[in-house]
Amino acid sequence: MIVAAESCDIEGGIVCTPSNVNELFVFKPIFYIGEIGISRTHFLIIFAALLVVIFLFAGLRKKSVVPSKIQSVVESLVTLIREDIAMNVIGKGGEAYVPYLLSLFMFILVGNLFEVTPLINFPITSRIAIPLLLSLITYVLFLVAGIRKQGKEYFTHLIWPPGLPVALKPLVGLIEFASTLIVRPVSLAVRLFANLVAGHLMLSLLLVSGYFFIYQNGVWPVPGKIPIGVAWYTFGLAIYGFEIVVSILQAYIFTLLSAVYIQTSLHPEH
């Protein structure tokens, strides 16, 4: 975006348009390992993991009987995952998935909150690689869980729920096959990815356009433009608050849906 701003020519009447959405999501490589450019994104991905580790470590280091502030936050987060998601949704056999669900939730949460963290302002989950990776892990996990629990019957149950009339089998089979094996992982990944892309787009466009209306890249603008810029900026700040909610909610929903998918593999009768 900043690159686009530098390239725009106000005197020539060219409005600053980002040439492409990629400009908001792809950073210039800092250095190269062989052919692969290592950019800020890669560092942020590792940094997110380290932040999760540091946060959990800080919360659980002191095993005091009366919890400190950070400890009670960590404990309530773990309780949320363990009781509300693992136990309530998966039910029997849910305890085994608590480590996965917890790390999933924490990693996505930190990755999402990078969107609204000052000086970072870039959600790593808006790079399709991260949601896709996590959704594939969930995909493999629930398939393996289903096969281990039900054997070969898992796939028949998957496509034809028990007690289905024969006449409906082809249609339902096709729908269920597509919805379970294709739509599930894709929608899981795309939901997180698209939410964060949309959020990042909105935030950068609103805040940066507000900035340009007020300051206009070093050239003081016509005074009449300033109210427009202020309005944009205010609206952008409102969206900023909304994005915090979206970040938390999307992390929760991703974890919840992973749990639901695992649950349908473990208990097909529901």
Binding site: S187, V190, R191, A194, N195, A198, I253, L256, L257
Partner: peptide
């Protein structure tokens, strides 16, 4: 909401 929203996001 998550299931419904997926359509819009696609």
């Amino acid at each position: 909401i998550a299931f419904t929203e997926a359509l819009a996001l696609i």
